[in-house]
């Protein structure tokens, strides 16, 4: 009935370039991100440092960000390319976090619209959210049920598995 809003051509590229520039000049600590190939601005690679005082401390976790053509109206998807044992990360590495869910699409029916994607969010905000997600998992909406269970019932075991993964990502 109504035309779904679509971004003008070039909006996505222009916006992604601006964000890239900002991240290079003034990116927050513990995060780096940028296009894998400067010819394709829709595929990014990023690295996230494990937050301090968590089992993830000391690790550096690689992930890819895939942007849709109508970015920033729709959010990108994020997928860890290393092994990740975390309640909110699917076994294939896809991150399940409210800021990455487009508005109107709430798979778990618990997020308020305000926590979700909106055009004024940015790559930087996503990566910061993911970092705090690593520190504080949300076990109400588990993506990896096994990780949820271990995190809830046996925190020591959870720490052990995560630390083992950290060592693997560092190639130790």
């Amino acid at each position: 009935m109504y035309k779904k809003p679509s971004a003008k051509g070039g909006t996505a590229i222009r916006r992604l370039m601006t964000e890239y520039k900002q991240l290079i000049n003034d990116g927050p600590d513990g995060i780096s991100a940028g296009p894998i190939d400067e010819d394709n601005f829709f595929e990014w690679e990023c690295l996230i440092q494990g937050p301090e005082d968590t089992p993830f401390e000391g690790g550096v976790f690689p992930a890819t960000l895939t942007f849709p053509k109508d970015y920033p109206l729709s959010p990108p998807t994020m997928k860890f390319t290393c092994e990740m044992f975390h309640p909110n990360v699917y076994k294939d590495g896809t991150v399940c976090i409210s800021i990455l869910h487009p508005p109107g699409d709430d798979p778990n029916m618990y997020e308020s619209a305000s926590e979700r994607w909106s055009p004024i969010q940015s790559v930087e905000k996503i990566l910061i959210s993911v970092m705090s997600m690593l520190a504080e998992p949300n076990d109400e909406s588990g993506a990896n049920i096994d990780a949820c269970k271990v995190w809830r019932n046996d925190r020591a075991e959870y720490g052990r598995i995560v630390k083992a993964n950290v060592r693997k990502t560092l190639g130790l």
Partner: peptide, 26 residues
């Protein structure tokens, strides 16, 4: 205006929101 219009249209058409469409910023 174009971005704002898309934002509001998305809220109304896709999300069925009417009561509580807030400013597109934070």
């Amino acid at each position: 205006a174009e971005c704002y219009r898309q934002y509001a249209t998305q809220k109304i058409v896709d999300e069925g929101e009417s009561r509580n469409i807030t400013c597109a910023g934070d």
